[in-house]
Amino acid sequence: MWKFLHKLASPPHFYDLSAKIIPWFVVPGTILIIYGTIAGLFYAPPDYQQGDAFRIIYVHVPAAYLSMLAYTLMAVSAGIGLIWRIKLSHAVAAAAAPLGAWFTFLALITGSIWGRPMWGTWWEWGDPRLTSELIMLFLYFGYMALRAAIDDTTKADKASAVLALVGAVNIPIIHFSVEWWSSLHQGATIVRADGPAMPTEMLFPLLAMILGFSLVFGALLLGRVRSEVLFRERRSRWVKNVVLASGEQG
């Protein structure tokens, strides 16, 4: 197990293996998203209160979920990189940030589009769930700006890792904000002690979307880590071989 992990964490092996793994994320992910979109838009029944507007859930929830997953991944990888000095984990953290920022942006905008007709407002300043999600967007921006501002990769890794870890406090705040404070946002629907508060014909497309988007996110992350690894190891022999072997197609 350790041997396998160690091998995986070595950049050349990761580079080879990830190329083979990516299609296994993209293909099922795309199929799940296509199923989820069609089933969610046309086959799931409308909600008794929100009518067809509730269908925004099929893009909003996966985006919000991935925005938090990406941050968690970024903070954990940064922490691992800081403690065990594994090169690959800093590359993962650096790759997760822009993707996380995009999904946070998407969660905020789709939430806003959903909030307008249902709650009666595009945005509510001071709402804990909305505010903490917006703070996460700024954390992503701060992380990327910090990285961009420091030329030395090792120093950039360390400084940004500290920022990622400090900002991780925000993750439980986002998650529990709807319980700790009064928020316009409702509580959890899927993950509940008494089971999901949703019938299966609504739930299955949602689960398919969450899983599908997670797989596509995984593929995007691997793709970004590949570039990151290549760049970081640009002076090494194996990268030289990879680039030369690619011929003119690269």
Binding site: G51, D52, A53, V59, A63, P117
Partner: peptide, 23 residues
């Protein structure tokens, strides 16, 4: 979408655009 077409389709459209940008 029972009058919510603009909201629903713009959400899905934006999602598609963001995914394409990421790729």
């Amino acid at each position: 979408m029972g009058g919510y077409g603009g909201y629903v389709w713009s959400s899905f459209g934006l999602t598609l655009i963001v995914v394409i940008i990421c790729v």
